[in-house]
């Protein structure tokens, strides 16, 4: 069994990615973390935002770690098990560093938008300049510290760039409420830059989405 949340980048930037996500979540809300791993994000959200959290995780080890942390987590698969959840049953459905490992990213995103009033997706940007360099100049699929798998054994079967993801959001009629990118050093890129800039220099992206009939949040 492959872990759903593949470890694709370093410890420091991972924590920052989770911090960015947690800042997007309103306190006291109901949250579903899809591919919750060992429950790090759910624990963070419970401690800092007082959320009522639930998780889905594919790996046995991850589920047991979550149980020991007192989290309510279901062993399951993002591709098949989201259909079991009723409409609008969560305030936020989060997919952290997992969309690229799903079999049907578009279907998963649509299901998340159905289940949650808001959706948060974070993913590694395949349009980052280091990836382009590897492919463009070396002619090889990138294998880096952040993307450590060879093409033939990677669980990350559906990489996308930030621009690809923006297009997917349009295709499923999701509204982008906020987008945050982190550069290679894990620093937030707060510049009001155009998409092409983010797509080249953002190593990770975090998107806050909603479906069109979700009321805009105040403030």
């Amino acid at each position: 069994m492959q872990p759903l949340a593949a470890p694709i980048h370093g410890e420091l930037s991972k924590r920052l990615d989770l911090l960015v996500i947690s800042e997007l979540v309103e306190p006291g809300s109901r949250v579903l973390d899809v591919g919750c791993g060992d429950g790090e994000l759910l624990t963070l959200l419970a401690e800092t935002r007082g959320v009522e959290g639930r998780g889905i995780e594919l790996s046995q080890a991850g589920v047991n770690q979550c149980l020991a942390r007192g989290l309510s987590v279901i062993q399951g698969d993002a591709d098949t098990d989201l259909v079991d959840y009723p409409d609008d049953s969560f305030d936020y459905v989060i997919l952290s560093q997992t969309i690229q490992a799903t079999m049907h990213p578009r279907r998963v995103l649509s299901e998340m938008l159905r289940i949650g009033r808001r959706v948060i997706v974070s993913f590694p940007n395949f349009g980052h300049w280091t990836v382009r360099t590897s492919l463009g100049f070396r002619g090889r699929m990138p294998v880096t510290e952040n993307l450590p798998y060879s093409w033939y054994d990677t669980p990350n079967i559906h990489f996308c760039t930030i621009r690809d993801f923006v297009q997917l959001c349009r295709d499923v009629e999701a509204e982008i409420e906020r987008a945050v990118t982190l550069n290679a050093g894990g620093t937030r890129m707060t510049l009001n830059a155009p998409w092409w800039f983010w797509n080249l220099f953002g190593q990770q992206a975090v998107f806050l989405l909603s479906h069109p009939d979700t009321p805009k949040r105040s403030g």
Partner: peptide, 21 residues
């Protein structure tokens, strides 16, 4: 078991589920 998990999810209950190999 998943039928029960699904029902508990639908009713908003707190549920964990483990399938042991």
């Amino acid at each position: 078991s998943k039928t029960v998990v699904r029902a508990l999810n639908a009713s908003g209950a707190s549920v964990s589920f483990v399938e042991i190999e």
